[in-house]
């Protein structure tokens, strides 16, 4: 059954990727785009496919994978099914910091925006952790409440920054808060990779530890997990994944919540099995969501965060009801 699901996931992902390159947007007919992919086609068509659609697709795939893996890891680390970068305020913290960087950094150092986003995500993570922990460890309820508080603070901060942003910088700063892949460039995709690969290695290395942490910190410690070390590393990795995603695509909620849970239903809870599948499923969700965002009200484009929220909110409510 899991083999078949693996195959289905790969097929769905490939089909979505192909669809994203072939269709969507009035500039090109499907036939012309197909010709480009087959190596023929006009030069203008090639520009649309390879310089506009392909980077956008790759960004959606990378961001989706990053958010889903961050969610899967946080859920296990915190032994909390509701944990994910968006709800815990980690994306919000990254966005607050990235908005400020976009607004006020000198033009030449805009390459530092991802670092600022990661730093903001890390600070938000630390804040949530500090607020949620009590003498006997963090409680899941307090953690979600702490996420609400950090999210509220981040939103307020973003509004203040936007109010003070010089008008030429406003679109860039605003884009961070919207959640969209429209700003994708070939460069952005390459810039994102260094922020994704090291955290990925950290999560895989601690896959077994994370499985143990899903039964609680004390329980994990009795089975040999250096809880403090693993927690620090995984938090940083999750902050890097979320911060990187925010810096290049803005806040996209619920991908980190939905995909790991759907994958847990099919592939079980072992993190080593779960992480790659969650990554692929997150990539699929973002790529498909972006496609819908482009074509649903074409030529108007909906922010992709709207699509993922439309899917995520009912899912969140269902999880909440079940855990109540």
């Amino acid at each position: 059954m899991t083999r078949a699901a693996d195959a289905l996931l790969v097929v769905a992902l490939s089909a979505t990727a192909l669809l994203a390159l072939l269709a969507g947007g009035p500039a090109l007919t499907v036939k012309d785009a197909a010709r480009v992919l087959l190596g023929a086609g006009t030069e203008e068509a090639a520009v649309v496919v390879f310089h506009l659609r392909l980077p956008r697709l790759l960004l959606a795939l990378s961001v989706g994978a990053a958010l889903a893996m961050a969610g899967a890891a946080l859920q296990s680390l915190l032994a909390n099914p509701l944990a994910e970068p968006f709800l815990l305020g980690i994306s919000g913290g990254g966005a607050a910091s990235a908005t400020m960087a976009f607004a006020f950094l000198p033009m030449a150092s805009l390459g530092l925006v991802p670092l600022a986003a990661i730093a903001g995500s890390a600070v938000a993570t630390a804040l949530v952790w500090w607020m949620a922990s009590g003498p006997l460890g963090p409680s899941p309820t307090r953690m979600i409440l702490a996420g609400v508080a950090v999210n509220a603070a981040a939103s307020a901060f973003i509004l203040v920054v936007l109010a003070a942003t010089p008008s030429p910088r406003l679109p860039g700063a605003l884009a961070v808060t919207m959640g969209s892949f429209a700003g994708a460039t070939p460069g952005a995709v390459l810039w994102l990779l260094p922020y994704l690969l090291p955290p990925l290695a950290v999560l895989f290395h601690h896959g077994r530890d994370l499985g143990l942490l899903a039964t609680g910190e004390e329980s994990a410690a009795t089975l040999g997990v250096e809880v403090g070390v693993v927690r620090r590393r995984v938090f940083l990795a999750a902050a890097a994944l979320s911060g990187g995603a925010v810096a290049f695509a803005g806040i996209i909620g619920f991908v980190g919540l939905i995909t790991p849970h759907l994958c847990r239903l099919v592939w079980g809870h072992s993190l080593r099995r779960l992480l790659p599948r969650a990554a692929l499923a997150g990539a699929l969700l973002c790529a498909a969501g972006d496609h819908l965002a482009r074509v649903l009200l074409a030529p108007t484009e909906i922010p992709v965060g709207v699509i993922t929220a439309a899917l995520g909110v009912p899912f969140f409510v269902a999880l909440l009801r079940r855990s109540a």
Binding site: A79, P81, A214
Partner: peptide
Amino acid sequence: RREVARLVTLVPQSVSFAFPL
């Protein structure tokens, strides 16, 4: 920590499971 865990195992009164393992 891991060396200790190979020799010593603590069985707590209860463990809270976040997922249906």
